[in-house]
Design a protein around this nucleic acid. Structure first.
Lengths: 342, 342
DNA sequence: TCGGACGTGGGTAACGTTTTCCAAATGTTT
DNA sequence: AAACATTTGGAAAACGTTACCCACGTCCGA
C-alpha cells in the first residue's frame, strides 16, 4: 500500500516546480524543450500517472461518459466501437453507464456522470424530456445520438429514419408486396412522438406506403421495441382477415420476435411472409437468421458523436450541429417476391 | 452556466459548518438528529449533489469500475445486470470500461480506472498476468470474475468449468454419441493455461471423455472463442476421416460459427451432428436457434462479485474468498440421439 | 541606451470535499 | 459538588492538480 507518486515527487525529482510539471503534462505554453525533456524523463523514471480526481477539481477529468439504455442491443455496441475508435490515441477515456431504462433511472445515471465531472457526455437514445436534456447540456458538453430535432445546447447525431423506413417499403413493394404491415414502438409523449426514431420510422412507413399508392393497406401493430413486442405484434397481425404478406419490424429484435410468432403459426419465411428489421445488428447478418434489415452504420454514428463532443469541449461557444446519416438496406433471405395477387 | 451548489452553500443555508454537512452526508458519527434534519432540508431545498471528484481526493468516489473484455458477449450483459441489481439502492455507481481485448489494452483500461480513484474494481475474464492483477488489487479492492485460482489480494468468482464441460459430455454420451469433438480457445501462456475458463473447459472435456471410456475419441480443434473461431474449428472437424457426431463448442458464439459451417457443408443439426455451446446466452435460447448450452447464471456471478467488492471496500483486511458456482445444462434442440454406431 | 515584447519559470491561491483534531456543553457517577 | 465520560459542533489542514499572475532575462527596434 505504498503511496502513489504525485506531481510533487516528479517536480522534486526533476528539480523544477510543480507548475512546470503541470505545464508539460498538459502541453501548455511556457515550457522550454529542455525542461520538457527533463520532466518527461522524471515522469518515466517514477512511473507517474496523474490523479484524475484531483485534475477534475480544477480542470478536466479526461473522461467521456456514454449513457446506453440497453446493453444487449448489438447496434449500441457498434456505436460504442465507433466512439472508442475515434477516441483511441487521445487522452480521453470512455466510461459507460449501464442499465438506464425509464426516465427516472436515466436521470439518476446522468446525474451520476455529471457529479463525476465528466468532460463530455454522449447520450444514446435518451428518453428524458427535452428541457432536461437542454439543461444537462448547458452544464456539460453533450451529444445526443438517435433522437431527432435540434437544440441550442447539444449536438445530435441521427440516422434518417424516414428514409430507412422508405427503403424497406420500397424494397417490399418492388417485390410485389402490397399488404405490408408495420410493428411500431408505442409512443404517447407528444415531444418524443416527434423526436424518437421509432415515431419517425412509423411516419416514414406511412409516407412511403402512401407514395406507392398503398395507403389502403397501411396496418400498424403498436407494441414495443422488444423481442416480446415483436412476438405479440406479429400475433396480432396474423389474426387479420386478410393476412399481411410482409412485416416491417421497427427493430431487429422485434423482427426476431415476429419470426418466432410466425414459425409458431406454422407459416414459413419468406415463403408465406417476408420480414424485415431495422439496425442490421450482428444478429441480422448471422447465417441461419439472415434478416433483411436497415443498416445504420453505428460505427460512423459513434465516431461522429465522439468527434462532436471533443469539438464542443474545445469550443463551448460553437453553434450546435446536427449530423444526419443516411441508412442503407441490407437485403438478405427473409424477404422474397410476393405471391401473385389473388 | 450557473455554478454548482457546493457543500459551503448548504452549510450557509442551514447555518451550520461544512463539517456538519459532511457528517450528515456520510452518516458519520457526531451529528444530532436535529442537525441532521436541518441539513437534509437544506440539501433538498438547494438540490445539492456532492462532487465526486472532490470526494475522491480525500475519501471515496462511490464508483465501481467494471472491466469487460467484449461488449457483444451477451453473457457479460447478464453479469452486469447482476452487479447493478446488487448495487441498486446503494450510493455506488457502476461504470463500465469497454474495449479491452489484449493485455496491453487491458492494462491501459485498468490504469484509467485506478487513476480515477475508483473505490472498487470488478475485472471480468482479465488476461493480465497474475502478478499484475495482484498489484492492482493491492491498491484497489478488486474482484476477478471468471478466472480460476486464488490470490492473497483479490476475491474471485468463477463457474465450475470442469463440471460444465462434464455436463455436456455426459449429456451427449447419454444420447449415444461417441465421437464428441471439442472446439477450444487456443492458449499458450502457462499460468493462464491453469486459470482461464477455456482451459478448464478443455480439461473437463478430456476428463469426462476418459471417465466415460471415450478417450480414444477425444478430438480437439484449437481456434478461438469467436464466431470465426467456431466456423474454422468446425470446418477442421468436418474434414476428419471419421466425422464427429457431436461438437461441444467452448462458448455460444463459437457454437453459432460451427452451426454456420455445418449448414454450409450441407449437414443438418441435430440430424447429422449435435452441437452444444457454453454460457446459455440470450442467443442460445432464441427460438430458431435453440442451442443446447451450459448455463452459468451470470446474474448470480455478478451479484456475488458486487457483494464481495463492497465487502472488501468495507474491510480491506478480510481474507480473500473464492466463490465457485455450479453450472447447469439447458437442453434444447441442437442435440439429439446419435445414429446407431456403424 | 531605453523600453517594450517575448520566452521561461515559479509562487500561490483556488477547486470541494473529508479528516483530524479540539472545545464546549451536557449527562452520569461518585 | 466534584470528577469524569459522552455528545455535539466547528476550525483548519489536508488531498493532487491547475489557473492566474508575477518576475526575471534576453532580444530587438527606435
Amino acid at each position: 500500500m505504498d503511496k502513489r507518486v504525485t506531481i510533487i515527487d516528479v517536480a522534486r525529482h526533476a528539480q523544477v516546480s510543480t507548475t512546470a510539471v503541470s505545464k508539460v503534462l498538459r502541453n501548455a505554453y511556457g515550457a522550454s524543450p529542455a525542461m520538457r525533456a527533463k520532466v518527461q524523463q522524471a515522469i518515466a523514471e517514477l512511473g507517474y500517472r496523474p490523479n484524475a480526481a484531483a485534475r477534475g477539481l480544477r480542470g478536466q477529468t479526461y473522461t467521456i461518459g456514454v449513457m446506453i439504455p440497453e446493453l444487449r442491443n448489438l447496434f449500441f455496441a457498434d456505436i460504442i466501437d465507433g466512439i472508442t475508435a475515434q477516441l483511441g490515441g487521445t487522452d480521453y477515456q470512455v466510461l459507460i453507464a449501464p442499465g438506464c431504462n425509464g426516465e427516472k433511472e436515466e436521470a439518476r445515471v446522468i446525474d451520476a456522470m455529471t457529479d463525476r465531472s465528466m468532460d463530455g457526455l454522449i447520450l444514446i437514445a435518451p428518453v428524458s424530456s427535452k428541457k432536461r436534456l437542454t439543461e444537462v447540456a448547458r452544464a456539460t458538453p453533450t451529444v445526443v445520438v438517435g433522437r431527432h430535432g435540434s437544440s441550442p445546447t447539444y449536438d445530435s447525431v441521427t440516422d434518417d429514419d424516414v428514409v430507412g423506413a422508405a427503403l424497406v417499403v420500397d424494397h417490399l413493394a418492388d417485390l410485389g408486396h402490397r399488404r405490408i404491415a408495420h410493428i411500431e414502438h408505442h409512443e404517447t409523449d407528444r415531444v418524443r412522438l416527434a423526436e424518437m426514431p421509432n415515431a419517425q420510422r412509423a411516419n416514414g412507413y406511412r409516407e412511403a406506403m402512401t407514395r406507392r399508392g398503398l395507403s389502403e393497406f397501411i396496418d400498424i401493430a403498436s407494441t414495443s421495441y422488444t423481442h416480446e413486442g415483436g412476438y405479440v405484434g406479429a400475433k396480432q397481425l396474423l389474426t387479420r382477415a386478410e393476412r399481411p404478406t410482409a412485416v416491417f419490424a421497427g427493430a431487429d429484435v422485434v423482427a426476431l420476435g415476429a419470426l418466432e410468432a410466425i414459425a409458431e403459426a406454422g407459416l414459413s419465411v419468406p415463403g408465406d411472409i417476408s420480414v424485415a428489421g431495422y439496425d442490421n445488428s450482428a444478429l441480422a447478418s448471422f447465417g441461419p437468421i439472415s434478416l433483411t434489415s436497415v443498416d445504420q452504420d453505428g460505427r460512423q454514428m459513434g465516431a461522429d458523436a465522439a468527434r462532436l463532443v471533443i469539438g464542443r469541449i474545445t469550443d463551448r461557444e460553437r453553434r450546435t450541429v446536427q449530423v444526419k446519416l443516411s441508412p442503407t438496406l441490407a437485403v438478405r433471405r427473409t424477404t422474397a417476391r410476393a405471391a401473385p395477387h389473388t
